[in-house]
Design a protein around this nucleic acid. Structure first.
Lengths: 387, 387
DNA sequence: CGCCTTAGTAAGTTACCGTTACTAATGTAG
DNA sequence: CTACATTAGTAACGGTAACTTACTAAGGCG
């Protein structure tokens, strides 16, 4: 590590601490939080303010002493774009450093029924629209949320059953689109990106994130950062085997969790039509079967997979999201009982099962947030390139 | 991060690069490997040599150009101690920075049959003997390998069934023993320490380490570093549930992997006596049952647990150790078949199942290696305290 | 013998951060 | 209302780490 890296590192630390805290902070507060000295923080902040990445508010009197100058991430000096490609729509969300959602554009189309080219083209147009809406403000980059498995480098879609895609170079094609003029594009699994929306509320926490949607996905968060894994799909709890030689899963294997508790699996087994919305699934199931039994089945399957994941990772917190969030209170007792029967962590303390706060479009928001990352990691590089 | 931390960091980087490489390296080679400049490396090396942490060899002519001055971690300027407490013996191993094993002392006693005080006392005497053998050389610290679960801070033994210990403050007592005069002591699970012996051969690798002994334990290695988890027992694959409501495990739960493939479980189920050695277990089992069936049972259970771990962690390499290593070739086909039937990773490439090189006493060696860590992490601090 | 190549060092420069001591701006006790 | 306490922030200086440049050391090769 060289001295210039040190400054980059410290700039990043200061900027991240500002982005992470919900309240504006003074230079002195940052100094205390980062363990840097006041003069150092002053200098770093000066650079960030000069580049427009940080804003000074008007001085605030707070008890005794000199009033503080509140600092916060700047609004509107840059945008980062999140793009979500789902079976029936494509959305693009622009956010700025302050986390403000600057603009959102959505186009409804049956991606499955159309060519990949069409999806690339629509995506590029949404992106162009978002950039136009942002005005002269520079764009950091684009992160794409896709319901499937992405190649480790984030350039190809290996398989996305809901989109009917297998080994599709969507990202390369999008990145090469003339409307994007070379903007960096990266893709990740939608469930893994959704976890980013949980990080603000749980700074530095370690937990397992489980998201139920058409499939069951998730992510692993260790001390505030999302684990990638070798292929970028760490946390894919949906294909934990909960019953050897059990039910056939869409992935072709047998006994996967997803073969029991995903929207698809539950709906098909109950013989319900495809028109049932994910959020209404449990209610619909409860019409034909005893509700407690539905909940029990979901809870036990989920609990077992979660217990196994907690054991091997040595975690003791779980966050339920997606269609699991609204029924979290209902299934928690069953999940907790199953987890406590199998998890080692109970020997050291209670296992916490929380529900996600469930903002709309977590994948899209998470993707936009992920697209901000280059600026947060290397503010100096960004400043040199754009000021 | 401050400038003084920068130097500490770089000292650590240089020292680690020397310890990691099997061959002696020149200053220029270190500069290339660490991306520091030659003068910087020279200065850092100068400090390390001055403190006796690094040794210069005699210049070596290698093709054209000025001969290189080979550098290697110093032999014998310090020792770190690994202590292993097992059911029937306590061992203490002293190693130096060069990885040389300076001395080893073992005492055979039935820890189970004796008091904790006796174990503490014997341990302290072994440690004292090791320090005496090392002469005037300073001791970095002690890392204790224990067959059980340790509290997150490494101070108490929560449970060690093989030793008959439950919630025993072994570490505190040992650290307070007068013979140790304040030497830092840390404890970890033996299986997790054993993985340290694999790190040299696989620098920067990510893999799942599975070790079969009286129980089944393991560790998770991500990019060359061992994952701790919240309580220090990440990688405990032995309590993955492979059959809901299955066989009763020693831990009180049902269906754990350990209830099927541990030495205890296999031996008891076959009605064999306790005299059977771990390494002879498979041979002994094959006397009463078809060998292929024994192998098949072990392989399938293991494969399922491994597949689940690989899925959630997104890894594609497994290293088998302990009593699994000698039979690795034999069980690999079954394990591989089971893993490939259930693991997502196969979609991105082959899953590798390797066997540990199986040096003797990996827990003891791993513990000694772990005890070296403070010097490798903060060479500057060590130098200031000891030169 | 001159030239090329590579290792390592010396001297000087740049740059980052810390220390010290200050100013700024407010509240509070007497 | 003044002196003082308190907290925020800045200015100037100094130490130190690492980089740049330019050199020497030491060998091989034609």
């Amino acid at each position: 590590m060289q001295s210039t890296d040190l400054r980059e590192h410290n700039l990043s630390v200061v900027l991240r601490s500002l982005v992470a805290s919900s309240e504006p902070a003074s230079r002195a507060a940052i100094a205390k939080a980062t363990r840097l000295t006041k003069p150092t923080v002053s200098k770093l902040v000066e650079e960030l303010v000069g580049a427009g990445l940080v804003q000074e508010g008007s001085p605030q009197v707070r008890g005794t002493g000199r009033p503080i100058v509140p600092l916060s991430p700047a609004q509107g000096t840059l945008v980062a774009l999140g793009l979500e490609v789902a079976a029936d729509h494509i959305s693009c969300l622009a956010v700025d450093l302050a986390g403000r959602e600057v603009s959102q554009h959505t186009e409804y189309l049956h991606v499955t029924a159309r060519s990949v080219d069409a999806a690339v083209d629509r995506s590029a147009r949404l992106i162009a629209a978002a950039r136009t809406a942002a005005g002269a403000v520079p764009t950091v980059g684009i992160c794409v949320a896709l319901p499937g498995r992405i190649s480790p480098d984030g350039s190809r879609v290996l398989s996305a059953p809901n989109l009917g895609w297998t080994d599709v170079p969507f990202v390369e094609r999008l990145a090469a689109h003339p409307l994007l003029d070379g903007l960096p594009v990266r893709a990740q699994n939608d469930n893994r990106l959704a976890v980013n929306t949980e990080l603000d509320r749980r700074p530095g926490a370690s937990f397992l994130y489980v998201r139920g949607s058409t499939g069951v996905g998730g992510a692993i968060v260790l001390e505030g950062s999302v684990l990638d894994g070798q292929h970028g799909w760490a946390g894919e709890i949906g294909h934990t085997v909960i019953e050897q030689g059990g039910a056939r899963c869409r992935c072709g294997r047998r006994g996967c969790l997803e073969a029991y508790v995903s929207y698809h699996a539950l709906r098909e087994r109950a013989g319900l039509s495809e028109d049932v919305l994910i959020e209404d699934l449990v209610d619909a199931l409860a019409l034909s079967t005893d509700r407690a039994e539905v909940i029990g089945t979901i809870g036990r399957s989920l609990g077992l997979a979660i217990a196994n994941a907690l054991n091997v990772l040595d975690l003791s917190t779980v966050v339920l999201s997606g269609y699991l969030a609204p029924i979290a209170e209902e299934i928690s007792p069953v999940v907790r009982a199953t987890v406590e029967a199998h998890a080692l962590a109970v020997e050291a303390g209670p296992v916490t099962i929380e529900r996600s706060d469930g903002l709309a479009d977590p994948s899209l928001r998470g993707a936009a947030r992920a697209a901000l990352d280059p600026v947060l990691t290397s503010p100096g590089t960004w400043i040199r390139q754009h000021v």
